[in-house]
């Protein structure tokens, strides 16, 4: 009994530690936005490249399109809030973009619960962006539970990257 509870606490502590240390900003590599579309031109910032502050690539890589969560939690850490402050600022500047916030869980949970947990994370992210002035009608969320991991190893290093909310932006209709 005692061993079990200690192990549980240890697991939880490790989870928190992994969440608050490092791995903060998704590197966004391979997201396939913009970069390289007009490759080969030298000098100046390519429109749409990661160096163009108005590009989706800039949002995904430089601002950071994702925030991470502790095991079974949906509270936003200080670092997550900092990332979301950047997202909110970007969305304010680029107000023709809409965003879908995708909530995810690691595989260490049951399928239905993880869908609900992913929704909590996505909703917490969305509410934060709204609190920073983003119009609610530009935002919606969906949860994928544990169906779409980005890392497949069976260690906390991977699980911590899978417990995430990703802000996926797209050009809106008109407005």
């Amino acid at each position: 009994m005692h061993i079990f509870s200690k192990a549980l606490i240890l697991t939880a502590v490790l989870g928190l530690a992994a969440c608050t240390n490092g791995g903060r900003f998704g590197n966004g590599a391979g997201d396939g936005y913009g970069s390289g579309a007009n490759g080969g031109v030298s000098g100046g910032v390519l429109p749409g490249s990661a160096n163009d502050p108005a590009s989706p690539a800039y949002f995904n890589q430089t601002v950071g399109d994702r925030v991470f969560f502790a095991v079974d939690q949906s509270t936003l850490s200080a670092q997550a809030q900092a990332t979301l402050d950047g997202q909110a600022q970007w969305l304010m500047t680029n107000n023709d973009y809409l965003a879908v916030i995708e909530g995810h869980a690691d595989e260490q949970g049951t399928r239905e619960y993880n869908i609900a947990l992913g929704a909590r994370r996505a909703n917490a992210t969305m509410e934060y962006l709204i609190s920073k002035g983003i119009a609610p009608n530009r935002l919606r969320f969906v949860s994928y539970g544990k169906e779409r991991p980005v890392e497949v190893c069976a260690s906390e290093a991977c699980y911590s990257k899978n417990r995430r909310a990703v802000t996926v932006i797209s050009m809106g209709m008109g407005s």
Binding site: S74, E112, I115, A116, A119, R120, N123, A124, E127, S143
Partner: peptide, 9 residues
């Protein structure tokens, strides 16, 4: 069945 609304299911 379950329905999610905001953070609540």
């Amino acid at each position: 069945y379950s329905v999610t609304s905001g953070s609540n299911t």
